[in-house]
């Protein structure tokens, strides 16, 4: 009886994910397989071997865009993860203990989430007011230092983009961390406290290990969200921004507009491969962390 039940459950599980799997297969896997196939052909349909990949890897614009994107991801995701964790831990502690009646903690949480609700076009407008030529920042710099800040025409443009990404996503990640934090049994902290563990030790030895399963989810979501920052970059600085904030999406857009599809296929495959490897490595290290 037991054996029959488990078989039913197993088939049932497969059957349940089948519609979703079918959808993913039809709308994601099959098109991607087609992209993979086309990446080895020329625009005229002739087999090109790895020449498209060679062309992409030798392309200055691709190297710049890929470098910028990688730099952005490498800088933003750790900073965002750490920042949102700190915010979540502080909010959790304040709302749980010291300031149970303080409604401002809840207000602060809402305020941090607000950027998610603001449409990208409105965000871009605000950034333009601040950072673009003759914006507030330029005016203040002129008053104080005698020259404009010229944020969008210098390397600073990249950090404007980083700031934009952190501002938009900190609240969201904080909520995810908060969910993880509320799942940690209070008894663990109480026991540690009795054993004489300080605040940092509790954070180091209880909070972080307990949140490790959450880290993977947050990391992957942040990684995927980091690709959405292009909207703001595009709306603020146009199709050809300063080279420091020229991302892969800019290049892909231009290639698509010029119908450079074979380059686009190869670049898409390379990007997907890098993301896949990154997630795979993360998963491996996460599993290792869990095992430890």
């Amino acid at each position: 009886m037991k054996k029959r039940q488990s078989s039913i459950f197993r088939n049932e599980g497969l059957a349940f994910i089948a519609p979703s799997l079918l959808g993913v297969a039809i709308f994601v896997l099959l098109p991607f397989a087609d992209v993979l196939r086309r990446s080895f052909f020329t625009a005229g349909g002739k087999f090109a071997g790895l020449s498209n990949y060679a062309a992409v890897l030798n392309n200055t614009a691709f190297r710049l865009a890929a470098g910028n994107t990688l730099k952005f991801v490498m800088l933003c995701i750790p900073v965002l993860t750490a920042l949102s964790l700190l915010l979540a831990a502080a909010a959790h502690r304040l709302s749980a203990e010291a300031c149970r009646s303080c409604s401002w903690v809840e207000v602060a949480k809402t305020v941090l989430l607000l950027p998610l609700a603001v449409p990208a076009a409105s965000v871009a407008l605000i950034w333009k007011l601040f950072f673009c030529e003759n914006g507030f920042l330029d005016v203040w710099f002129l008053q104080w230092f005698g020259h404009p800040a010229a944020c969008m025409e210098t390397e600073t443009a990249f950090y404007v983009l980083v700031f934009s990404y952190l501002w938009k996503n900190a609240g969201y990640d904080m909520v995810l961390w908060s969910a993880g934090l509320s799942g940690i049994p209070r008894e663990l902290y109480q026991a540690a406290e009795i054993d004489g563990a300080g605040g940092f030790a509790r954070f180091r030895y209880i909070t972080i290990p307990q949140l490790l399963p959450m880290l993977f989810t947050i990391f992957v979501l942040s990684l995927l969200n980091s690709f959405q920052v292009f909207r703001e970059a595009y709306l603020v600085a146009g199709e050809y921004p300063h080279t420091s904030m020229y991302m892969l999406q800019h290049l892909f857009n231009h290639w698509f507009a010029d119908l450079e599809l074979e380059k686009l296929y190869a670049a898409a495959v390379l990007t997907a491969l890098v993301i896949f490897l990154l997630i795979l490595a993360l998963q491996k290290s996460w599993k290792a962390g869990i095992a430890d």
Binding site: N59, T60, A61, L64, Y240, Y246, H254, W255, E260
Partner: peptide, 11 residues
């Protein structure tokens, strides 16, 4: 000019 257009032309 060469620097500014390099990116555009190399695309």
């Amino acid at each position: 000019i060469e620097e500014a257009t390099k990116l555009y032309l190399s695309e």
